[in-house]
Amino acid sequence: MGLNAQNITNEELFYGHKACGGCGAALSIRLVMKVLGKRTFAIVPPNCMSTVAFIYPSMTFGCSGAITPFAGTAAFEAGVEAGAKELGLTDYTVVGFAGDGGTADIGLQSLSGAIDRGDRIMYICYDNEAYMNTGVQTSGLTPYGAKTTTSPAGDRLPGNTKAKKNVFEIVAAHDIPYAATASLGYPEDLLNKVAKAKAVNGPSYIHIFAPCPTGWGCASELTVDLAKKAVDTGLWYLAEYENHEYTLNRNPKEFGDVKEYLKKQNRFAHLKDEDIAEICRIRDAKWAQMRTHWNA
């Protein structure tokens, strides 16, 4: 039996933080830490999470933790791992918690380097689809049509004009021992993927779809609901890469209502029907490729 709410620890290792109510990033870290436990080095670049977790004198991680330079989450982790190994430490995990910008944009180089070297580190990307800490700017993982403070929606542009960068497959292309996507809408799936990643003797990567009510302009109680709907509408997918192969963990016969998902979020409120059609077109092309080439 896998991990679930019943058998997971009651102990909290990310507690008392100052994140916004309903924060998906905070929930991601909380759930991951429940699996990893106290013998963990949690490395966080400057982002919402380091901002809310590491303000002297209030420390919300229950394990060891550090803020790393923005571009260097994986490099910092690699150093921790090398140092810990040389000092003879055993039974610990080195994990990084970076957002979408910290992963797909500024941190991609160091992530690539660490995976390439085969460093025994875990890397969690909590993807809330924009630079939230600085006030909702477009990142490489902002989806098509999302309005951010740097991808305004108006007569000429529908908000962001690019689809999400495919970081999961970029990571997998290194032939990483283990990579997965997850969603806060399917927390048990996430817990079990973290457990799998923890057991890997090498780099592992988990990309968590993690809504941000503040940045998305939605009610705070919808965090988990929207994360589930993103999967059910096919706008996000649950998958794994291991043993050199991709596997689609959920392959819905029918997708949920995209418009209903989008319209709960102010960042998509401006979308016209043709924009929504474009979003569906991007989705369908991705699913056609996954269904053809991946294990389902």
């Binding site: 080095f41 490395i43 550090a66 790393t68 330079p69 571009a71 260097g72 490099a75 910092f76 982790e77 690699a78 150093g79 921790v80 791992e81 090398a82 140092g83 810990a84 040389e86 000092l87 430490l89 160091s110």
Partner: peptide, 10 residues
């Protein structure tokens, strides 16, 4: 950055 990580564990 890796040096920081290594030094951070001593």
């Amino acid at each position: 950055t890796a040096s920081l990580g290594a030094a951070s564990v001593g």
